[in-house]
Write a protein that binds this DNA or RNA. Structure first.
Length: 543
RNA sequence: GGCCUUGUGGUCAAGCGGUUAAGACGGAGCCCUCUCAAGGCUCAAUCCCGGGUUCGAUUCCCGGCAAGGUCACCA
């Protein structure tokens, strides 16, 4: 059979680049020894979740800790998956979490290895497909979807391996006449690889994350060019990662099973195989079992006001479990200084642990200055807050005073009350009269409450310092029937209505609407005399 | 079902033939204390099962079992 003629008939394009031109256009990168070139290659659905961030972070760290390149390639070979604005959305979401690309789709600067949209690289794929056909390593297949389904049905029934291989590869060895007849009839076709592999042959393969794994040779005549002339993922992957000079392919472990295909493709194409690292996916508990979690969209964490640096830190602890220890030893150092290692990545899928994320978040946020916290909260409020929130945040000085208290600024040990912006903003609501709607739940009878509140209100002086303030609280408590000193109370509980804590709780409830709060004296100072006293009397009336 | 991967406390995990089997989150308790938070201290809790190999297996081998992934003209 005249393969050259067949190739021209199948792929008639007369403007394809030559193979040599491709090699010349995308020369090996000049980088220092050991530098990794990694990439994030999403399909443009625009949806990214925590798992994607996790894997993007691994790619980014692998590249940037070695002085390499991290780029963004868009795998848009499937028209159905395309969503408008998706690429910008991916870039924006990742940037929010501090992940930046060196090159790639929609990225300024060096585009030497582009285009980075696969659809715009059609000519390159077609050139190589044509070459494969000419060399007898690929061939047209006219099987219809129904025929393929029927093959699969028979194979399933006979308990054989499903797929297009061996005797089931019905177009693999058709005669010239049959092929041209189908072509004349205008039947649509795909281009398949003429696999040279043998499933009975196994090789051990070194995965950068999983270590030694065994791979079976591929014997499937996989589709490399779909009937619309666009390549499948497999084919595009081999060509793109070769010409974009990727050194380390980090991708989800769902790709492990198609690794044999990729190995064969690189081989027939004459390309050197990059290194691969297959990550395990983040899971979440769902109905008692672990599973991949598709729902945790990054936008959800943004809207909930998670602190980007905390999310990254949490992810780093899952990526390299020695990160936490390193971070503890190197307080103040940026996570980018951590010697990240792909080989230290976990081999089994980690369960997403919200408690842990929250803990890391509180910890990270507690390190901010009140001004820094204001900036973070204000950013969230601007985008996700209510109109009332935005009005409150106009008074920067007032908020910062509150934050200094809430965060324990100036103390040797900071408080860790704020875990994310949304919760933090709600936490300070009681400092604003229009957001203060207490549901009093006093544990004492009306008279006791009123006595306590009135006694304290009468003696309150906004100029008192903390100890004077507390002395007055104790005096008011004693007058209302509480024990002024804890020791007295412990000695004879039955003689009192309660101890100072109980008395303080009444005042706290009146001022903040909650039995718990940071230092009450300071809170009243921030509110000011007038509003503090108003709250005390409002609580009295409520009784 | 075939194939691949994984299997250490509730969770994330160190560990790589001999350890009292780290640490962190979470839980319980105590201390501190005007409450809360923070902090300090203490406690409970783990090597999937069965065979080997070995003087000795969490660690090596072989079988189970369980979980996850994958078997497309989707990536």
């Amino acid at each position: 059979m005249d393969l050259k003629k067949l190739a021209s008939r199948l792929i008639p394009d007369d403007d394809l680049p030559s193979l040599e031109e491709c090699e010349k256009a995308y020369p090996p990168r000049v980088l220092k020894e050991g530098a990794e070139v990694t990439r994030l290659a999403p399909s443009p659905t625009g949806f990214i979740h925590l798992g994607n961030l996790y894997s993007a972070l691994a790619d980014e760290r692998a590249a940037h800790t070695t002085g390499g390149i991290f780029y963004l390639r868009i795998e848009d070979t499937d028209e159905k998956r395309k969503v408008d604005g998706a690429v910008e959305s991916v870039i924006r979401s990742l940037r929010y979490f501090g992940i930046n690309f060196d090159e790639g789709a929609e990225i300024d600067g060096e585009n030497a290895y582009g285009p980075y949209y696969q659809r715009r690289r059609a000519k390159i794929y077609r050139a190589f497909a044509k070459d494969l056909i000419e060399r007898g390593l690929a061939y047209p297949c006219f099987s219809t979807e129904e025929e393929l389904d029927e093959i699969r049905r028979v194979q399933t029934e006979k308990k054989e391996i499903t797929g297009y291989y061996g005797k089931y590869a019905v177009w693999r060895d058709r005669s010239e006449e049959e092929i041209y007849a189908a072509l004349e009839a205008g039947k649509p076709f795909v281009v398949r690889l003429r696999s040279q592999g043998d499933v009975n042959v196994k090789h051990t393969f070194r995965d950068a994350i999983k270590g030694s794994i065994t791979v079976t040779e591929n014997d499937q005549d996989v589709v490399i060019l779909k009937s619309d002339g666009i390549p499948t993922y497999h084919f595009a992957h081999a060509i793109d990662d070769h010409f974009m000079r990727t050194t380390l392919v980090i991708r989800g472990e769902e790709w492990l099973s198609s690794l044999p295909i990729h190995i064969e493709l690189f081989k027939v194409l004459g390309f050197a195989l990059p290194r691969y690292g297959h990550t395990c996916s983040l899971m979440k508990v769902d109905g008692g079992t672990k599973r991949k979690d598709p729902e945790l969209s990054l936008d959800f964490y943004r809207a909930a006001g998670y602190y980007p640096a905390a999310v990254i830190k949490y992810l780093m602890t899952i990526l390299n479990s020695n990160f936490e220890e390193w971070a503890a030893k190197n307080q103040g150092e940026d996570y980018t200084a951590f010697p990240f290692s792909v080989s230290k990545m976990g081999k089994s899928g980690a369960l997403f642990d919200l408690d842990k994320l929250n803990d890391v978040s509180r910890d990270e946020l507690s390190k901010l200055s009140p001004e820094g916290m204001y900036g973070f909260l204000n950013g969230w409020v601007a985008e996700f807050g209510t109109d009332a929130d935005r009005a409150h945040f106009k008074d920067r000085d007032y908020i910062i005073k509150i934050l200094a208290l809430i965060m324990g600024a100036g103390q040797k040990k900071r408080r860790k009350d704020i875990e994310r912006a949304e919760q933090g903003v709600r936490l300070i609501d009681y400092f604003f009269d229009d957001a203060f709607s207490p549901e009093y739940s006093f544990r004492f009878d009306g008279k006791t409450v009123n006595d306590m509140l009135k006694n304290f209100a009468d003696s309150y002086d906004e100029n008192d310092d903390n100890s004077a303030w507390f002395a007055k609280l104790k005096a008011a408590a004693a007058a209302a029937g509480f024990a002024a000193e804890n020791a007295e109370y412990k000695a004879d509980p039955s003689a009192f209505k309660g101890n100072v804590s109980d008395a303080a709780e009444i005042v706290r409830m009146a001022v903040t609407g909650s039995p718990n709060s940071p230092d009450l004296c300071t809170i009243m100072g921030i509110l000011g005399r007038e509003r503090s006293l108003a709250r005390l009397s409002a609580a009295m009336r409520a009784e």
